[in-house]
C-alpha cells in the first residue's frame, strides 16, 4: 500500500493555479489512485493568496495537508512560496516561479517585500527556482505560465508523460491546446 502523497499549489488569485491543479488531478485519476483536492474559493479570487491542496494514494481520508507534510510545494509566486514553506516536509521539494506580485500592504508602503528566495534557500538548499514567464514567452504564449510550471512539477513525479498530455488535452479548451502543449514541452526540455 502506497503512502499518501501531498502536493500544495500556491499562488495569487488570477495566476491560473486552479487550472494547473485540475490537470494534475485528472492525471492522478488516470493512474487509478484515490485523489482528494481542496481549494478555497471566494474572497481569495480577488488577488488574494490562493492555495490548492492535492492528496493522493491508495486511500485518502482528509482533504487537508497538515503543516510540515507537503512532499512538493509548487509556488507560482515568491512571497507565497515563503508563506507556505512551513508546510513542506523536511526532505520535500519546493519549486518556485521567479515572479513577484506585490500585495496591497507592500504597494502602499506599510510592509516590505522580503527577499523571499534568499530566505527560502536559507531554509531549503534544494529549492528549485524557475522563470516560467520567460519559458512561456519563448514557447510563444506568455499566458501559459501555469502549464510551464506543471511541466516542472511533472519532472518530480514518476508519471508517464502521455498521461499528462492526455490530461491537458481533456482540460484545456481546444483553441489553446497547441500553445499549452508547447509550453508543457518547453518545461520538459
Amino acid at each position: 500500500m502506497s503512502e499518501t502523497k501531498n502536493i500544495l499549489i500556491v499562488g495569487v488569485g488570477g495566476q491560473g493555479t486552479i487550472l494547473a491543479s485540475r490537470i494534475l488531478s485528472v492525471v492522478l485519476q488516470k493512474i487509478g489512485l484515490d485523489v482528494k483536492v481542496s481549494e478555497i474559493h471566494g474572497m481569495a479570487q480577488r488577488g488574494g493568496s490562493v492555495v490548492t491542496q492535492v492528496r493522493y494514494g491508495q486511500e485518502v481520508a482528509s482533504p487537508i495537508i497538515p503543516e510540515g507534510q507537503a512532499d512538493i510545494i509548487l509556488a507560482f509566486e515568491k512571497l507565497e512560496a515563503l508563506r507556505w514553506l512551513p508546510y513542506l516536509k523536511e526532505n520535500g521539494t519546493i519549486l518556485i516561479n521567479d515572479q513577484r506580485i506585490d500585495p496591497m500592504p507592500i504597494i502602499i508602503g506599510t510592509a516590505v517585500y522580503p527577499d523571499a528566495l534568499a530566505i527560502v534557500r536559507n531554509q531549503r538548499e534544494n529549492a528549485i527556482i524557475v522563470d516560467a514567464l520567460k519559458i512561456a514567452q519563448n514557447a510563444g504564449n506568455s499566458k501559459a505560465v501555469n502549464v510551464v510550471l506543471l511541466g516542472f512539477l511533472s519532472r518530480h513525479l514518476n508519471i508517464q508523460q502521455n498521461l499528462w498530455l492526455e490530461a491537458i488535452g481533456e482540460t484545456v479548451p481546444a483553441k489553446f491546446l497547441e500553445a499549452n502543449l508547447k509550453a508543457f514541452a518547453a518545461a520538459m526540455s
Partner: peptide
C-alpha cells in the same frame, strides 16, 4: 503521527510575512 517540519533558527523570518488581502481588481 509524523515528524513536524523542522526549520532552522532563522525561521523567525517566516513569521512576519506580509499578508495578501483580496483587493478590487
Amino acid at each position: 503521527p509524523h515528524p513536524r517540519n523542522v526549520l532552522s533558527p532563522a525561521a523567525d523570518t517566516l513569521t512576519n510575512i506580509p499578508l495578501r488581502p483580496p483587493v478590487m481588481c
